[in-house]
Simulated scan of single mutants.
Amino acid sequence: MTGRPLVVGVDGSQPSLRAVDWAADEAVLRGATLRLVHASLWERYEGATPAGDPGEPSEQVMAEDVVRTAVQRARLRHPGLRAVTDVLPEEPGHALIREGRDAAALVLGSRGRSGFAELLLGSVSLTAAAHADCPVIVLRGSQDNQVRSGPGGRVVVGVGERGADSAALRFAVQEARIRDATLDAVRAWRCPAHETTDHPLLAGEPAGLHEQHAAEILEQALKDVPADVELRRRTVEGPARGVLLGASHQADLLVVGARRDPGHRGLQLGRVAHAVLHHAACAVAVVPERT
């Protein structure tokens, strides 16, 4: 389906091996090459005397073993899979962001070997999701390692202000098509504080107008979705973060956009993407939206 590879970051940790499994399934569905990349700063320490048993393998040998194990795992899962590997003596976050420039998507585990148990999302995954030029798919730690396809599969996408011009929506449509899954398009809406739906005298028409406006935005955004995609439209009252986190419990993949400002150097995620990356119950795809 695409000439660009699907890149997965590997470091030998259980979350990264789960990402390898998931990425292998995804690569088969896309008809794409799987590129398995391990990046670390082992080269910095090659000249130092190793602590402990001098017969222990060097960091470079260990890195090569990580990618060899990962590619063997992927090919056992899908014997005909096209897969290549690379070991990069670089800081992982920056290396993976660069690898993503020519990738169809970048797939990562929620945490790597150096992740602290109390952290919900590792720094490498967070950095890549905030800066990569391609969609970044993060496998949440509580989910299984299988890409679901066919009847019963569900891709959820949050529909924002960009409407039909949203890169996140286009990505979600593509994912629903290759999986033969239902596309669940969700638009969150809220009443202003002075138009609460809890008050019996204010409930009804004001809230209905806000919901109708949300439905109109949703309908306009979805006007070009191909007829062969099974589509479910939903408008839900509440903050977008809470609405999408709730939807993630019935989803196989949750897709959100993240605006990219070329002049901004900090994390470029936004509150919604940041929240779902940390708390969603399914895999999360963060798709760059160019300003």
Results as ranks from 00 to 15, higher is better:
Asp133Trp: 09
Leu202Met: 13
His94Glu: 14
Pro192Arg: 05
Val124Leu: 04
Val124Ala: 13
Ala214Pro: 11
Arg179Met: 07
Gly204Pro: 12
Val173Gly: 14
Glu90Ala: 13
Gln212Asp: 15
Gly158Val: 04
Glu211Gly: 14
Thr196Trp: 05
Asp184Ala: 14
Glu219Ala: 14
Arg177Ile: 02
Cys134Glu: 10
Val157Cys: 14
Ala203Gly: 13
Pro92Glu: 05
Thr196Gly: 12
Ser125Asn: 06
Leu202Ser: 08
Trp189Asn: 12
His131Pro: 03
Ala193Met: 10
Asn145Trp: 04
Glu195Gly: 06
Cys134Met: 04
Ala188Thr: 09
Gly158Thr: 06
Pro92Tyr: 03
Val136Arg: 10
Leu139Tyr: 03
His194Glu: 15
Gly160Lys: 03
Arg154Asn: 14
Glu161Met: 04
Leu106Thr: 14
Cys191His: 08
Leu121Arg: 06
Pro135Leu: 03
Val107Arg: 13
Arg170Val: 10
Glu118Asp: 10
Glu205Ala: 15
Arg190Phe: 07
Cys191Arg: 09
Ile137Tyr: 00
Ser166Asn: 04
Val186Gln: 06
Asp102Pro: 01
Gly153Cys: 12
Gly160Val: 09
Arg187Gly: 03
Glu216Arg: 13
Gln143Trp: 11
Ala129Leu: 08
Arg111Gln: 13
His213Trp: 13
Arg148Pro: 00
Ser110Leu: 09
Ser114Phe: 01
Gly208Cys: 11
